[in-house]
């Protein structure tokens, strides 16, 4: 007799998972960070309190805190080794980061939200 958990899990279709990027949460007092490409990753946008602050229009009145979400997308096929090298390079570059969240697609659909 399967457990309830097993029954519930069986209803969820298994999907193909692919690593496509990393959200980095960076703490800095120096304003919106600027990044060159780092290894296999390119910065796509930066948000602060959920609002996109790079690239594009930013209200001059926008309240910003010292914590930025920086979305880095892979420019080629990547595995965990590339992520590890990326994190190492970011740390050696002097960036203080609070967390990293890998970005995956599930059957090609993004498993991550866009910024406003």
């Amino acid at each position: 007799m399967p457990t309830f958990t097993e029954v519930a899990k069986a209803t969820k279709k298994k999907r193909e998972i692919k690593l496509v990027g990393v959200d980095m949460y960076i703490i800095t007092e120096k304003g919106t960070p600027k990044f060159d490409d780092i290894g296999a990753f390119k910065c796509e946008f930066i948000s602060n309190r959920g609002t996109k602050v790079w690239p594009g229009f930013v209200s001059p009145d926008l309240l910003q805190v010292n914590w930025y979400r920086c979305r880095f997308m892979a420019t080629k096929e990547v595995q965990d080794a590339e992520v590890n090298a990326f994190l190492d390079a970011l740390t050696k570059g002097g960036w203080w980061w609070s967390a990293a969240q890998k970005l995956w697609t599930y059957d090609g659909e993004p498993g991550f939200s866009k910024a406003y």
Partner: peptide
């Protein structure tokens, strides 16, 4: 804040 992730399937 529009920060949502599927952190596993």
């Amino acid at each position: 804040a529009a920060i949502e992730h599927m952190v596993s399937d």
